[in-house]
């Protein structure tokens, strides 16, 4: 189960309203490589992971991604909190405003709604861990791209933090891959699926 703590993992203290920046950053809420997608991916994959410690890691990283989703939402919220009627019309936030005013709704920067098609849960440890490694890389690229175009230091500080987390998570998923490999036949890692062919794989309980 989860419980809430009344603070952000990384502080967000944005002083300047900027709906254009909000419209870009919202992609990390509901976009293809966003934090919501990351969280749902790991928390979905963990149940059938053959190595218990890898299921644990997926739980912990999946939980951290929810913290990141909250950071992103706080950024979008603060960037649009004091939006003036004039800024609604001119600052590139008009289409979003019509549907959601300044409420938070998970979508990609280009307006595509959040969908579970953005991630996979394949029921195969190798396939899932490679997906997770790739997901961290793709999210890093999004943060790189955001850092290229956003100048406000109040926005850059949390973006830098979130980018750094992608690299740490990549490393941990890499270690999880090694832990899974140790339990398999190194002559042919693809001889069976450890999540399905349970008689061939000695599961820890």
């Amino acid at each position: 189960m989860w419980s809430y703590e009344k603070r952000l993992q990384f502080p967000v203290k944005i002083k300047k309203t900027c709906p254009k920046t909000a419209q870009l950053i919202i992609s990390q809420y509901g976009g293809p490589d966003g934090e919501l997608s990351a969280s749902m991916r790991y928390l979905a994959q963990r149940y059938s992971m053959p190595v218990k410690k890898v299921g644990g890691l997926l739980t912990d990283i999946g939980t951290e991604e929810i913290n990141h989703m909250e950071i992103i939402c706080a950024m979008v919220y603060q960037l649009t909190k004091n939006l003036t009627p004039e800024e609604v019309k001119t600052a590139g936030f008009d289409a979003y405003y019509i549907d959601h005013t300044t409420g938070l709704w998970p979508q990609a920067a280009a307006g595509v709604p959040f969908t579970s098609l953005e991630f996979q849960s394949k029921g195969d440890a190798m396939a899932d861990l490679y997906e997770d490694l790739a997901a961290e890389q793709k999210a890093r690229t999004v943060y790189d791209n955001l850092l290229r175009v956003i100048d406000d230091p109040d926005v850059r500080a949390p973006l830098k933090f979130l980018r750094a987390r992608e690299i740490v998570h990549f490393q941990r998923f890499g270690e999880a891959l090694e832990m899974t490999k140790e339990k398999m036949d190194s002559k042919n890692f693809y001889y069976f699926n450890p999540e399905f062919d349970k008689t061939m794989y000695k599961q820890e309980l």
């Binding site: 203290k13 943060y143 230091p153 830098k160 979130l162």
Partner: peptide, 25 residues
């Protein structure tokens, strides 16, 4: 820095620019 471990701190060059004192104000 977003990590406890110096060996995992691998910054992006565009994130370095003008951010030498990037502390939440």
């Amino acid at each position: 820095e977003g990590t406890l471990f110096p060996c995992l701190n691998l910054p992006f060059y565009k994130a370095e620019e003008g951010d030498s004192n990037l502390k939440s104000t």
